[in-house]
Design a protein around this nucleic acid. Structure first.
Length: 425
RNA sequence: GGAGAGCUGGCCGAGUGGUCGAAGGCACUUCCCUGCUAAGGAAGCAUACGGGCUUAAAUCUGUAUCGAGGGUUCGAAUCCCUCGCUCUCCGCCA
């Protein structure tokens, strides 16, 4: 959520910044709502003040045993006017709130302008794609004989679900374990196990709701609804909702390995083969809650934490700075890590690291006590470290051998019982 | 699933219709006192959103907030209703 003060003080400026990312803000509607809100709020508060004062007088008079009928008569007419003003005011505030909840974050000045993926800017490339002396297979073909079972996944649940068996399942688990161990032991994140089902308030906090409900899976629960998390960014970041943490507690660094559930509405027909785009996938997520002055550097640091995994696995990748038009709703700046997939002959997203500034913190009322002892909004960041399913895809494709086996990266071997390669037995 | 208890400020905790945004304590901040390692004294100390003043801040002022929402009332932390959460006991259960 944007700071409503910024909209009041510099509407033009905010509108033009939003335009950079292709969002059209209805300034006229906002101004109209604001003007009326101001009038109604002032009037309401005046009436309330009058009522409070009179009620106080009644109390004092009664205590002395005096007659209160004169004051009572004075207050008599206030009720109805007050009631209608109060309800109009809350309507207006609700409408303003809803308007704000649907406005994306402002892009950081360093974010390149653009309208789509095509305008993203490559920051650096690391590693050299391997040259194959045999026809390269995609991960589905490499994986199928090794235990990557799309047919059964489809039978059990439908499209975009996969069953993993045997060594593939173990490799998948090894990847997750390795990532989690690395983020906790080498980069200082606290390991968390979080709920996979969350309430609506939690999703409003990180910005998935109210705007992106169609992207989520949900379950009826009593009279309410619970949602399957689309990422553990949601649960990890919401740990500080409605909290005022002491200055010394920052930065808070959390990580979790969880499944993620996404309806993938609007991506029909894209990546239908294989396990690039699934309704359910595992991810090791990193979240940082930081002092506002530290968020820019924390972003760079987190990109490094994600890159560390790719380097350790010896997977070629590139870092891309997302353009204004391609960034997520809550981000002020985002780097994507794209891993080399030889079968697709291209780099594909495997991690996304974002600085959300105070955008989520304002929705969450997540604050810290600043140097002056006053509560101030924190900055929040999140990033994948990494998407486990896509990493499995990358390992299968990049490490495939002519005989159909797949070499296990060195760092994963301890997690694989010392195995250096997997193959059809 | 059944029965009961509770939810008040950063924390503990008092408060059952009127001058209560809320006693008292702890913690914290500033000042004073004292030289002996901690004690004593004074003051301050919630958040959000408006309005006035201001370049801005400070400050002043109004409103709201005692788990959430609704109701009764001139007036609600206090009474009524609905919901949420926590705890205890019983049952069931990985």
């Amino acid at each position: 959520m944007l700071d409503i003060q910024a909209l009041r003080n510099d509407l033009e400026g905010v509108v033009s910044q939003l335009k950079r990312r292709g969002f059209v803000f209805d300034a006229a509607k906002f101004t109209a709502l604001e003007t009326e809100r101001k009038t109604v709020q002032t009037r309401t508060q005046d009436l309330q003040a009058k009522r409070n004062q009179s009620s106080k007088q009644i109390g004092m008079a009664k205590a002395k045993g005096e007659d209160v009928s004169a004051i009572m008569a004075e207050v008599a007419g206030l009720g109805e006017q007050l009631k209608s003003d109060e309800s109009r005011l809350s309507e207006l505030q609700l409408e303003l709130q809803n308007m704000l909840l649907n406005v994306p974050n402002l892009p950081h000045v360093s974010v390149p302008d653009g309208v789509s993926e095509a305008d993203n800017v490559e920051v650096r490339r690391v590693g050299v794609p391997r040259v194959f002396d045999f026809p390269v297979k995609d991960h589905a073909d490499v994986g199928a004989p090794l235990g990557l079972d799309f047919d059964t996944g489809a039978k059990l649940s439908g499209a975009r679900f996969t069953l993993m068996r045997g060594q593939i399942a173990k490799l998948h688990r090894a990847l997750a374990q390795f990532m989690l161990d690395t983020q906790t032991e080498q980069h200082g994140y606290e390991e968390c196990y979080t709920p996979y089902l969350v309430n609506a308030e939690t999703l409003v906090g990180t910005g998935q709701l109210p705007k992106f409900e169609e992207d989520l899976f949900s379950l009826a629960h009593n009279d309410s609804k619970l949602y399957l998390i689309p990422t553990s960014e949601v649960t990890l970041t919401n740990t500080v909702r409605d909290e005022i943490v002491p200055l010394e507690a920052l930065p808070i660094k959390l990580t979790a390995h969880t499944p993620c559930f996404r309806s993938e509405a609007g991506s029909y027909g894209r990546d239908t083969k294989g396990m690039i785009r699934q309704h359910q996938f595992d991810k090791v997520e990193m979240v940082q809650i930081v002092h506002p002055e530290k968020s820019d550097e924390a972003l760079e640091e987190m990109v490094g934490h994600a890159e560390h995994i790719l380097k350790a696995l010896a997977l070629p990748y590139r870092v891309v700075s997302l353009c204004t038009g391609d960034m997520g709703f809550g981000a002020t700046k985002t780097y994507d890590l794209e891993v080399w997939l030889p079968a697709q002959n291209t780099y594909r997203e495997i991690s996304s690291v974002s600085n959300c500034g105070a955008f989520q913190a304002r929705r969450l009322q997540a604050r810290f006590r600043n140097e002056q002892g006053k509560p101030e909004l924190v900055h929040t960041l999140n990033g994948s470290g990494l998407a486990v399913g896509r990493t499995l895809v990358a390992v299968l494709e990049n490490n495939q051998q002519a005989d159909g086996s797949v070499t296990i990266p060195e760092v994963l071997r301890p997690y694989m019982g010392g195995l250096s390669s997997i193959s059809v037995r």
